[in-house]
Computed example of a mutant assay.
Amino acid sequence: MDLDPMSVLFLLFGLAAVAVVVGFIVIALIQVLREPLLPPALRMCWVIVLIALPILGTLVWFVFGQSINERILSAI
């Protein structure tokens, strides 16, 4: 089976994109698990969100995570 160069290029870009997305998800999970001020219940909620909605949850964590956590912790 002979692959043309364009197919190989698309395959490599696709694999690179998947690797980047998986890397961001893993980084977000590690940050959530290492966040020292998060109560266990909130930490578990973040983990569930990151696992159930990996791409959307990761974006929410990186964009809004710190401000959401600060707001919740100030209300406690």
Rank of each mutant, 00 (worst) to 15 (best):
Ser74Trp: 06
Asp4Arg: 14
Val8Tyr: 04
Pro5Ala: 15
Ile55Asp: 06
Phe64Lys: 07
Trp61Arg: 01
Ile27Thr: 14
Val18Thr: 14
Pro39Leu: 07
Arg71Lys: 12
Val18Asn: 10
Ile25Ala: 05
Leu56Met: 08
Val26Gln: 08
Met1Ala: 14
Ile55Ser: 07
Phe24Gln: 07
Val60Phe: 02
Cys45Pro: 01
Phe64Met: 08
Met1Phe: 11
Ser67Tyr: 08
Val60Ile: 15
Val60Ser: 03
Ile76Tyr: 10
Ile76Lys: 12
Phe10Ser: 09
Arg34Phe: 06
Leu53Trp: 09
Leu3His: 13
Cys45Ser: 14
Met1Leu: 13
Ile25Glu: 12
Val22Phe: 07
Val63Asn: 02
Ser74Tyr: 05
Leu50His: 01
Ala41Glu: 15
Ile68Tyr: 00
Leu15Ala: 14
Leu33His: 07
Ile51His: 05
Leu53Asn: 08
Met1Trp: 10
Arg34Glu: 11
Gln31Ser: 05
Leu59Gly: 06
Asp2Asn: 12
Trp61Met: 00
Val47Gln: 02
Thr58Trp: 00
Ile72Thr: 09
Leu59Lys: 02
Ile51Phe: 09
Leu9Asp: 12
Trp46Gln: 01
Trp46Arg: 00
Val20Glu: 12
Leu73Val: 08
Leu12Cys: 10
Thr58Asp: 01
Leu3Gln: 12
Ile68Thr: 05
Ile27His: 10
Pro36Leu: 04
Ile48Phe: 06
Ile30Asn: 06
Val60Cys: 03
Val60Ala: 04
Leu42His: 06
Phe10Met: 14
Ile68Pro: 00
Pro39Trp: 06
Val60Glu: 03
Leu50Ala: 02
Gln66Pro: 02
Gly65Glu: 01
Val20Thr: 10
Leu33Glu: 12
Ser67Cys: 06
Val20Arg: 12
Gly14Met: 04
Ile72Gly: 04
Phe10Thr: 10
Leu38Ser: 07
Leu59Ile: 13
Gly57Ala: 02
Leu11Gln: 15
Trp61Ile: 00
Leu11Met: 14
Gly57Glu: 00
Asp4Thr: 09
Ile25Cys: 09
Ile27Asp: 13
Phe24Asp: 05
